[in-house]
């Protein structure tokens, strides 16, 4: 088991958003989380990543560290990241004054230090990162621009995937990575995600649209509503949702 979430309740600024989530992910699995706006999808991803604004009020998250499931409640976001949890942001943050390569090198070296491995200097890191750029159809210029500053929507999302490939996480939480992408950028991003997929990693795709799942095939599709998973199925559930919407599932629940 990679991660086991039990009866998870969480709130932000006093408002409850998650109301009892149960979810288990094994290595090698891809899970899609769908649901109407405001159902708690992004919150779930942020709570797993350890965003400080979200308070877990009940339940717990256990994550596999050194082969055993451990409660992550006491781990800071940076520690969770070093243990291999990656959050791809719905709205990647712009950081003026910090270049993309510096940002990624700091992240990569933080991971190396955590694992007791040698860190990389800028030259060798640049050589390493350049090998990842063609896959995402990114130009080397991206490395020397300020993080996400002046990037188009598609460039920002590709930049998230680039970071994911550099950090090679065991659990990737991709929060609406497909939103705002044209079809070519969507295919490129999907190619990046499929490159990460292996029998060792779990991937969680938070998405509104079935479209992404044409390119990244999920093993499970969960429907989140009002902070709970109300239905789980295979990829055919996503097609069904595309056709029928959510009303048939949520009627009588509100």
């Amino acid at each position: 088991m990679l991660i086991s979430i039990k009866d998870l309740h969480a709130k932000v600024e006093g408002s409850p958003i998650l109301n009892g989530i149960n979810l288990e992910i094994k290595p090698g699995e891809i899970h899609a989380i769908m649901g109407p706006n405001g159902s708690g999808k992004s919150t779930l991803a942020k709570v797993i990543a350890g965003h400080p604004d979200y308070e877990v009020t009940e339940g717990n998250i256990e994550y596999s560290i050194n082969g055993a499931l451990s409660d992550v409640a006491e781990l800071e976001a940076s520690e969770r990241a070093c243990e291999g949890i990656f959050l791809g942001f719905q709205y990647p943050i712009e950081i003026p004054g910090v270049t993309n390569i510096t940002f990624m090198q700091e992240a990569f070296n933080a991971l190396c230090e955590h694992q007791g491995a040698d860190t990389m200097n800028e030259d060798s890191f640049r050589t390493f990162i350049k090998t990842k750029l063609p896959l995402l159809e990114m130009h080397e210029d991206f490395l020397d621009r300020a993080v996400n500053e002046g990037f188009s929507g598609g460039e920002k999302k590709k930049n998230e995937i680039l970071q994911m490939l550099i950090l090679n996480p065991r659990l990737a939480l991709l929060d609406e990575t497909d939103s705002g992408l044209d079809i070519d950028a969507l295919k490129t991003v999907a190619k990046g995600v499929n490159t990460l997929k292996s029998k060792h990693n779990g991937i969680v795709l938070v998405t509104h649209y079935q479209r992404l799942l044409d390119y990244i095939e999920p093993d499970f599709v969960h429907v989140l509503f009002d902070g709970k998973i109300i239905k789980t199925g295979d990829k055919s559930l996503a097609l069904e949702l595309e056709e029928k919407g959510y009303d048939w599932l949520t009627e009588g629940l509100q």
């Binding site: 940076s78 070093c82 990656f86 003026p96």
Partner: peptide, 20 residues
């Protein structure tokens, strides 16, 4: 939080942002 979510400790992130 963007830094932290990439494994960079808060104190270090603050240093990088102050430098920027």
């Amino acid at each position: 939080f963007y830094f932290e979510s990439r494994g960079i400790k808060k104190e270090k992130a603050r240093g990088i942002l102050a430098r920027a």
